[in-house]
Computed example of a mutant assay.
Amino acid sequence: MTWTDFNEYNSDVQFQIGQRIQKLRIDKKIAAVDLAAVLDIHSNQMSRIENGRANCTVPQLYVISQILGCSVDYLLFGKQRLTISQEQADSIKGLIETFTK
């Protein structure tokens, strides 16, 4: 990976982050005004964040990710980390060993 492989932060990225926050908030049936209250911001600011007209701070992203049950990676990049149990990992390892012998 080179320095030219990175995307710059722009209004499109800001909008996508806001839309992910809004979708998760709605899915969790959390009112925007309630999320704004936890973040100690006005509901208008919450609306601006969700519509891509304002940025979240790092502390806000930290709290939002906990409330919405997602990773900050997901909020920023739209990618969810795959988590598996130890039992699942052992099963996958067993399958790989079976088919690579």
Results as ranks from 00 to 15, higher is better:
76 L>T: 00
34 D>R: 03
32 A>Y: 10
8 E>D: 09
23 K>D: 09
83 T>S: 13
59 P>H: 00
66 Q>G: 15
72 V>K: 01
47 S>A: 11
11 S>W: 02
12 D>M: 09
34 D>A: 05
68 L>P: 06
37 A>H: 09
58 V>E: 05
55 N>H: 12
85 S>T: 03
59 P>E: 02
21 I>A: 01
45 Q>M: 14
29 K>T: 06
58 V>N: 08
67 I>F: 08
43 S>K: 15
38 V>R: 03
61 L>M: 03
41 I>Y: 02
18 G>W: 08
6 F>E: 05
3 W>Q: 11
46 M>D: 04
24 L>H: 04
9 Y>A: 09
46 M>I: 02
86 Q>D: 11
4 T>Q: 14
6 F>S: 08
42 H>I: 05
62 Y>I: 07
75 L>K: 01
87 E>R: 10
65 S>Y: 01
67 I>P: 11
7 N>S: 14
26 I>G: 03
36 A>M: 03
4 T>N: 12
21 I>W: 02
46 M>E: 03
57 T>H: 02
4 T>F: 11
76 L>A: 07
45 Q>L: 14
73 D>I: 03
24 L>N: 02
77 F>S: 07
37 A>V: 02
81 R>D: 14
75 L>T: 00
61 L>Y: 00
62 Y>C: 13
38 V>T: 05
84 I>N: 02
13 V>L: 12
4 T>G: 10
4 T>H: 14
54 A>C: 02
4 T>D: 10
69 G>Q: 10
6 F>R: 04
58 V>C: 13
68 L>D: 01
35 L>V: 00
31 A>P: 07
46 M>Y: 06
9 Y>L: 03
77 F>C: 12
89 A>S: 10
7 N>R: 08
10 N>L: 04
21 I>G: 00
10 N>R: 01
24 L>G: 07
78 G>L: 04
61 L>D: 01
38 V>H: 07
67 I>M: 12
70 C>D: 04
73 D>E: 12
28 K>H: 14
61 L>I: 00
69 G>R: 05
68 L>E: 05
33 V>A: 12
57 T>P: 01
57 T>E: 02
81 R>K: 15
65 S>Q: 04
27 D>H: 10
8 E>I: 04
44 N>D: 11
30 I>H: 09
62 Y>E: 08
73 D>P: 09
25 R>V: 00
38 V>L: 09
24 L>M: 05
5 D>V: 04
75 L>G: 03
81 R>E: 15
51 N>W: 14
43 S>Y: 15
55 N>E: 12
51 N>A: 11
84 I>D: 11
69 G>L: 07
80 Q>H: 15
53 R>F: 14
56 C>V: 01
82 L>T: 13
78 G>A: 04
59 P>K: 01
60 Q>R: 04
48 R>V: 07
8 E>H: 06
17 I>F: 09
17 I>M: 11
33 V>I: 09
86 Q>W: 08
